[in-house]
C-alpha cells in the first residue's frame, strides 16, 4: 500500500487520492512559436525508472492538489507539498 503524507491531513492511504499528471513538465513561454516545445509539453512524457514528480489530488480528504515525489521502481513516496506552494 502506498501512503502519502498530505501536508493538511497527515499520513493517508493512497486510496483517498487520485493521480493527476506528470509535474515535471514545464509549459513553454506563451510567445514560443516552434512546434516541438508545444508538442513535448502536450504529448510527450518521459517514463523514468526511479524518482518522479507527480500531481496528486486528495479527492477524499482536503481536496488539495499536491506535488509529490514517487519512486516508480519501489513506489516509495518522497517529499509532498501543496501544489500552490510548489508553484510559488
Amino acid at each position: 500500500m502506498i501512503r502519502i503524507n498530505c501536508p493538511i491531513c497527515g499520513l493517508r492511504s493512497e486510496t483517498e487520492f487520485t493521480y493527476g499528471e506528470d509535474a515535471s513538465v514545464t509549459r513553454p513561454a506563451m510567445d514560443e512559436s516552434a512546434a516541438q516545445p508545444w508538442l513535448d509539453y502536450v504529448f510527450n512524457r518521459d517514463n523514468p525508472r526511479g524518482w518522479h514528480r507527480e500531481y496528486w489530488h486528495h479527492a477524499q480528504g482536503c481536496r488539495q492538489w499536491l506535488v509529490l515525489e514517487r519512486n516508480t521502481l519501489t513506489h516509495e513516496i518522497g517529499t509532498c507539498r501543496l501544489a500552490r506552494e510548489d508553484a510559488a
Binding site: C9, R12, T15, E16, A59, Q60, G61, C62, R63
Partner: peptide, 10 residues
C-alpha cells in the same frame, strides 16, 4: 476531526 473516504465517499 478528519476528512477521509468511507466506502469511497468523502
Amino acid at each position: 476531526f478528519l476528512q477521509t473516504g468511507l466506502h469511497s465517499v468523502a
